[in-house]
Amino acid sequence: MRAFCRFILITALLIGLSGCAGQPDHGRPSLYQRLGGQTGVHDIVTSFLVNVADDPRIVGYFAHTNIDYLAASLEQYICELSDGPCIYEGPSMARAHQHMGLTDASFNALVDNLQAALLSRNIDAGARNALLGRLAPKYSEVMHDQ
């Protein structure tokens, strides 16, 4: 329960910090550009997946996963979510995660690993918060059938 409360608090903070992250600002680079474009998103996803592979709390969830497919899907998803030129063609978050048995602790571990990946790629705090703010509302979809 503590982990869930921590997640809600962090989510509220990130959404507040991201402001109008979904609104285009014609004088400012898009979130996709701030993440480094295609190369940046690829590097973030690669770092994230390395972090997950090294995390004993959650690596088991990916034991039978096609990592190449997962990496490509995550790149496409983050690209679209960050206003890049991609169109995510994968399954909904609810379908992709159904029956995985995720817990709040495992969800939080994924968020920790993503934050570490963003930091390792030197993504500035504003772009990190904006991306996490856009991902935070997906929590209910990811955890829907858990």
Rank of each mutant, 00 (worst) to 15 (best):
I10Q: 14
I10W: 10
I10S: 15
T11W: 06
A12K: 14
L13F: 10
L13N: 12
L13Y: 14
L14F: 09
L17W: 07
S18P: 03
G19D: 08
C20P: 07
A21H: 01
G22P: 02
G22W: 00
Q23E: 13
P24Y: 03
P24S: 08
P24D: 07
D25E: 09
H26C: 13
H26P: 10
G27Q: 09
R28L: 09
P29S: 06
S30A: 14
L31R: 06
L31G: 07
Y32K: 03
Y32N: 12
L35Q: 00
L35I: 02
G36R: 03
G36S: 01
G37P: 05
G37M: 03
G37T: 05
Q38F: 07
T39M: 06
T39C: 02
T39R: 11
G40D: 01
V41W: 03
D43T: 12
D43I: 06
D43E: 12
D43Y: 07
I44Q: 04
V45K: 07
T46A: 13
T46N: 09
F48S: 05
F48H: 10
F48R: 07
L49A: 03
L49C: 01
L49M: 05
N51E: 10
V52M: 08
A53R: 11
P56F: 01
R57G: 00
I58P: 03
V59Y: 01
V59L: 01
G60L: 04
F62D: 06
H64C: 02
H64F: 10
H64R: 13
T65C: 07
N66Q: 15
I67L: 13
I67N: 00
D68T: 15
L70C: 10
A71I: 00
A71T: 12
A72E: 12
L74K: 06
E75P: 05
Q76M: 14
I78V: 13
E80S: 10
E80D: 06
D83P: 00
P85G: 13
C86Q: 08
I87E: 10
Y88I: 12
Y88P: 08
G90R: 04
M93E: 05
H97R: 07
H99V: 09
T103Y: 02
T103P: 11
T103L: 03
D104R: 09
D104W: 11
F107L: 15
N108A: 13
N108K: 06
A109D: 01
L110E: 04
L110T: 00
L114C: 10
L114K: 09
Q115H: 06
Q115T: 11
A116T: 01
A116H: 08
A117H: 04
L118A: 10
R121G: 04
